[in-house]
Simulated scan of single mutants.
Amino acid sequence: MAKAFCKLPEDFLLKLSRLGDRTDEIIPKVLEAGGEVVEAKVRANLQSAIGSNPKEKSRSTGTLAGALGVSSARQDKDGNFNVKVGFAENRPDGKSNAMIAGVLEYGKHGQAPRPFLKPAKSSSKNDCIEAMKAAFDREVESI
């Protein structure tokens, strides 16, 4: 059986080993960079969805838009890192922000749906990936 040997440059091998040592530092930074891009798109879509009914005066108080945010990167029980874009649950009137967002997204009897989450997800996918690639490249360059 034939054998082949490949010698990699020493500096490349050193960078790979340092990259492996810093994985738990790099992954959260990369995910949070992507989360910020998605949050910006969701926020823009939410603002346009709230004021999109020209027949009625908007009853928006800004509470839902103020509750939108990105969680910090956390590791789950399987060892995967996750970042969530969503709404904080505390609301002064006692209703859940997730419920209000669901009604806005899907509608209810007498209220037409005004989707803002699903379009934001699909339209920000490529920008999110590019932002995460750029953040990863910055982290690799700093090694």
Score class of each variant (00 low, 15 high):
1 M>L: 08
3 K>G: 13
4 A>V: 07
5 F>M: 11
9 P>C: 13
10 E>F: 11
11 D>K: 13
11 D>E: 15
12 F>M: 08
14 L>C: 11
18 R>A: 15
22 R>K: 13
22 R>S: 15
26 I>L: 08
26 I>P: 03
27 I>Q: 06
28 P>D: 15
30 V>W: 11
30 V>L: 09
32 E>D: 02
32 E>G: 01
34 G>H: 01
34 G>N: 00
36 E>D: 15
38 V>E: 15
40 A>H: 09
40 A>S: 11
41 K>T: 05
44 A>T: 02
45 N>E: 13
47 Q>R: 10
48 S>T: 12
50 I>N: 08
51 G>P: 01
54 P>A: 13
58 S>K: 01
59 R>W: 15
61 T>F: 15
61 T>V: 13
61 T>Y: 15
66 G>H: 05
66 G>P: 02
67 A>D: 13
70 V>N: 01
70 V>T: 13
73 A>I: 08
73 A>K: 03
74 R>D: 12
74 R>L: 07
77 K>N: 02
84 K>N: 09
85 V>W: 01
85 V>Q: 06
85 V>D: 00
86 G>N: 08
87 F>V: 08
90 N>S: 10
92 P>N: 07
92 P>G: 04
97 N>I: 04
98 A>L: 12
99 M>Q: 00
100 I>V: 07
101 A>W: 03
101 A>P: 01
107 G>T: 04
109 H>R: 09
110 G>C: 03
110 G>M: 01
111 Q>R: 06
112 A>K: 03
114 R>N: 04
114 R>P: 00
119 P>Q: 07
119 P>W: 04
120 A>Y: 05
121 K>R: 03
121 K>S: 10
122 S>T: 10
124 S>I: 03
125 K>A: 15
128 C>K: 09
129 I>P: 03
130 E>Q: 08
132 M>R: 04
132 M>L: 04
132 M>N: 01
140 V>S: 12
142 S>P: 00
